[in-house]
Write a protein that binds this DNA or RNA. Structure first.
Lengths: 251, 251
DNA sequence: TAGTGGTCTAGACCACGGA
DNA sequence: CCGTGGTCTAGACCACTAG
């Protein structure tokens, strides 16, 4: 064949429509909470079938740029994160006062604990690799801000360590579980946080009421006592659209 | 109306199929790289239309659990992350030797810099809020591991600070840009990293060759000199499936 | 060449939300 | 009530991959 097509492969219609809409959003032409053209509008404007219009909107929805509301329309999504500090001690105001990349107006608002489940369990494989024990006490909670769930957390403690202490009860007392670990002579002196991001499992999406196209941030925080033993492993799943994690450290 | 439907709303067919397939993956029945049932197989197995079978597979693809290959099939995706340490100084081996939640076999493999672009530019709004200047020198690079792109990075420096220094040239010399900043009397003594996760913009997805359903991790790292002035802002975009970030800090 | 996924059409019925 | 998005069917043509 001599006549190859030298055309640099035009993207399909639904992509070009999605690109146009995204551009309108990024340029500020469409702003937070604005309504996008609906399926019917796209069908008539571009002379396409319903499924194609849906496909264009699905692109933006799966990107987390837009969010659909049944019976109403598709809307521009907003990003107003909570700022979570890894190491409070190092995050002094003197470093970059008012100089954050992302604004966060939810910072400092009170959390509420929606759900709380405490149980003694055999240790899961990945947790066992860190805590080095056979049984754990687990405190599972869901946190909400302004009535919207934002985080699932599961704190794991070696069962032998916390058996019969307030750590295994709903009210852990002043200072929380870390103060109780200190009372037991195992005060945490060092923390390691492992951070990754991924798409949520359906159960996570349901519990966090995540719209499509929203990743979660998974933070696994290990607390170490002075001897080097791991005394707590906290697995946190956060709505990525609701959080900015901040870490401070010296050179 | 008296006869309301008391049924707790069964999920649609495509979701139930997606759930079954996901379960098969999570349970290990289908393993990394295995081929999933194709569209035709699902059509005949469940007696559904093509679009419905596609919809089921699209769920898994958008979750990042599966990845489609044209003309071949849909396959189970794998997760083999690189471990990136925020503060090397604090991440001593004594804390949790061999006790990470996620294995990472790519750790320590050499990066290569695929692309390098250096330019003097007017400062963007968000960067200007941090660096407090009108013009910046920007070093943009793309990093790859084993020939696969994993990270886009853009380092910004106040133009007045680095004008005429090796920071504005491809080869920055021994120790890199931080050593050059030190030579200039602006050695970084403190770092702040802001971390968020989101779905990639199409240009980012293209440059990182991301399959659908892969979020990116965005890390904005600010370096501060002794006086408290911000001397560098590095915006990094990472393939979330390729990275685990680790942060260590003391209580 | 046969089978795969990628795109697209032209219909249909449903549940939900706002006016 | 009507318009919205959510689900589904039954076709079609295409580009790509593998045997």
């Amino acid at each position: 064949m001599i006549e190859g097509s030298p055309v640099p492969h035009e993207p399909p219609i639904y992509r070009r429509i999605a690109d146009r809409l995204r551009q309108a959003i990024l340029s500020g032409e469409l702003r937070d909470g604005d309504r996008l053209p609906g399926e019917n509008a796209l069908m008539s404007e571009y002379g396409i079938a319903r499924a194609t219009a849906r496909q264009a909107l699905a692109v933006l929805i799966n990107e987390g740029v837009a969010v659909p509301k049944r019976g109403s329309g598709v809307y521009v999504r907003q990003f107003r994160p909570i700022r979570r500090h890894g190491s409070r001690r190092l995050a002094r105001e003197q470093w970059g006062a008012g100089r954050a990349i992302w604004d966060s107006d939810v910072s400092g608002r009170p959390y509420t604990v929606d759900e709380l489940l405490i149980a003694r369990e055999p240790v899961a494989e990945d947790v066992g690799r860190v805590l080095d024990c056979d049984e754990v006490w687990v405190r599972r909670r869901r946190y909400s801000v302004d009535g919207r769930p934002v985080q699932l957390a599961a704190s794991h403690f070696p069962a032998a360590l916390v058996e019969g202490t307030p750590v295994t009860t709903p009210d852990t007392g002043a200072g929380g579980v870390y103060a109780r670990l200190r009372d037991l002579g195992h005060a945490p002196v060092h923390f390691t946080e492992e951070v990754r991001a991924r798409m949520p499992a359906p159960e996570e999406a349901a519990r966090l009421r995540l719209p499509a196209g929203t990743p979660v941030i998974e933070v696994c925080r290990t607390a170490f006592a002075a001897g080097g033993a791991a005394v707590e492993l906290n697995k946190m799943i956060m709505d990525a659209a609701s959080y900015v994690l901040q870490y401070d450290f010296d050179a």
